[in-house]
Design a protein around this nucleic acid. Structure first.
Lengths: 345, 345
DNA sequence: AAAGTTCCCGCAACCGTTTGCGTATGTGTC
DNA sequence: GACACATACGCAAACGGTTGCGGGAACTTT
């Protein structure tokens, strides 16, 4: 009943009594093929609904036109926004996107990278799992000529392509904003210490306080492992300081939300007894009755798009004969975070 | 400098002075290969870091071990949860997942399906764009032997595999819940009329009211196109009814949040002047000070997982010789939504 | 010792497409 | 009518791996 056999180039060739190479060339508008046969071929291809078998092409060309994306999860709007950026650029360049979640587990991340490598994705975009400390599995990709671009959660060291937002200026703005509002005891709800950004945040925090001639109290800096429980614990630690902090800078909007939840449980009025400022500026906060007073926008869409651009550029360059003497260079794009103030008072 | 050449089966064969077929079989633990050579081959493969070229295998086996997932967007937690379910099952079965967003545009959806078809994904899981009305591009996949499983936003008609949650029982529960709480004027914030679920919701709404002997006022049923503006408009319409509704059943949590936003702008107190009940029961609501009073849980993870299971089952069956007489059958799995009450009063 | 078995392994085709190279036919030139 | 030259197409190899089949060597059987 069903004809089961998909039309191939061979099929067309047979029906038209020409060779497969002629068909192939005709379909690609190769100049060496006469107009007459070119037309005949294209017409029949139309009629048969011929579509080239991409797997064959991938195999032959040693290219899959697929880029892999590995990120901690898809639930956070930051990442799904970033994917939008990636997809946008990918589609424009006729690339497909293979997405996988590390679930913030280093082991799983490694596994995913291996799979992607074997599937011969052309390149990979990564936002690291929160506890990833070893980058060997990424370095190993070099042997396979698979370029990697990191974004947001990027590794330290110069030997990587990366796109990330510079928290420092945003952090500075955020803290100065709070100080301007009269806050003197400002808590920091920081991420795990393995994350590069965590250290930087603490650093900038100290710098601003010094500059503003305020006392530094490291009891006001706490780490959460990004789980709700971890955040609650960190909040508990922060709120037990005396005098209590009147404002808190949280590593991202989700953590801020968890922190608010805890604060409410402690009968604190948000934006009155305690003020929050965080990072990311996610749409989710627009739904809230009491959003963080300000948020450092990190432009996830832009980050994703930029990472994709860099990757695709690399892929295009790869086709060209690399000049032998060329030292390998790495892109390092910094997108400045910017403080967005949500509420006036 | 860099050896550029990836190790292949040929390479191993040459180094060991055996044929490629022997190597291939040795690596697969084929019984027809002697223990000695099997060991030698496997050892060398190890040393060379040999990894089979999947693209070659895909091509040869006419199978890619990839399933495509098409859904409206990744931003909604419902969908990202569903993906988690899909990924879970996929990984267990050694499938990769190719994700693409239709952005709720029928045209883009069609485009994606075409690309996936050409990329020879083994099967596809789809949640329809909100205005998709023609299913031809899906039906066309049959010719390519690519099975499709729909979830959540499923097409009407019996000729499709689908997994969706039965809103009716949930809707019934939700409305009865509101009536029990004393509400008599219950508004419905429904989705676009193209969506099957919208019609059903209205239907069930009417049934319950009839059963409870309440007057039906269709002015209390409004449609939103799922954008924030659309929802505001619909809310405006609902709130202009007299007497005003005291409770609103919203098509999903996001819409409920938008609606609340509007209600607050109108100086209505949530859960006091006006009560919301919605669908999905997303984690996002756990962050809210005033979450919907109740929500119909739709088990996105389960839906995704189930869809993936069905698809993979189909793929496995495909390998087996299909009995010619067999009429094609379609799975139709219904997951009952269940009302989850958030706040007591 | 010849015949039959069993055990291992190699040969070669195949999947669908691309592409370098060779060649038949046609065109133009003197 | 012999020559060069372009034009239009075919041949065949290659990409990397899988698999049916066939066959040589070693071993068992009678």
């Amino acid at each position: 009943m069903k004809e089961d056999k998909l039309p191939t180039i061979k099929e067309i060739a047979k029906q038209l009594n020409v060779s497969v190479s002629t068909v192939s060339r005709a379909l690609h508008d190769h100049p060496g093929i006469g107009l007459r046969t070119k037309m005949r071929v294209q017409k029949l291809a139309q009629e048969l609904d011929y579509e080239p078998n991409q797997t064959a092409i991938f195999f032959k060309q040693r290219k899959t036109f697929t880029i892999g994306v590995v990120l901690p999860n898809l639930k956070e709007e930051f990442f799904s926004e970033a994917i939008n950026g990636i997809e946008e650029i990918a589609i424009q360049n006729k690339y497909s996107v293979l997405i996988s979640q590390s679930k913030d587990e280093a082991e799983r991340e490694k596994q995913i990278i291996t799979t992607m490598k074997n599937n011969r994705v052309d390149g990979i975009i990564v936002s690291l799992a929160k506890h990833t400390v070893s980058y060997e599995h990424f370095i190993a990709l070099k042997k396979y000529n698979i370029p990697v671009v990191f974004f947001d959660r990027v590794p330290t060291g110069p030997d990587f392509n990366k796109v990330y937002s510079n928290m420092n200026s945003g952090t500075r703005e955020a803290i100065e904003f709070l100080i301007d509002k009269g806050h003197r005891r400002i808590g920091v709800l920081n991420g795990p210490e393995e994350m590069k950004s965590s250290k930087e945040r603490t650093e900038t925090y100290k710098q601003v306080l010094v500059k503003k001639r305020l006392k530094i109290d490291l009891g006001l800096v706490a780490s959460t492992d990004l789980t709700r429980e971890g955040t609650f614990k960190a909040m508990e630690a922060l709120l037990s300081q005396r005098p209590k902090p009147t404002a808190i800078l949280a590593i991202n909007d989700y953590i801020a939300l968890d922190a608010m939840l805890y604060a409410r449980q402690q009968r604190l009025k948000i934006n009155k007894d305690i003020t929050f400022v965080s990072y990311a500026n996610l749409p989710i906060t627009s739904y809230l009755e009491t959003p963080p007073m300000a948020s450092v926008e990190q432009y996830p869409f832009k980050q994703g798009a930029k990472a994709a651009e860099i990757l695709i550029d690399l892929l295009k360059k790869e086709d060209k004969p690399a000049k032998p003497g060329d030292p390998e260079t790495f892109q390092n794009v910094v997108i400045n975070g910017q403080l967005v103030v949500h509420s006036k008072r």
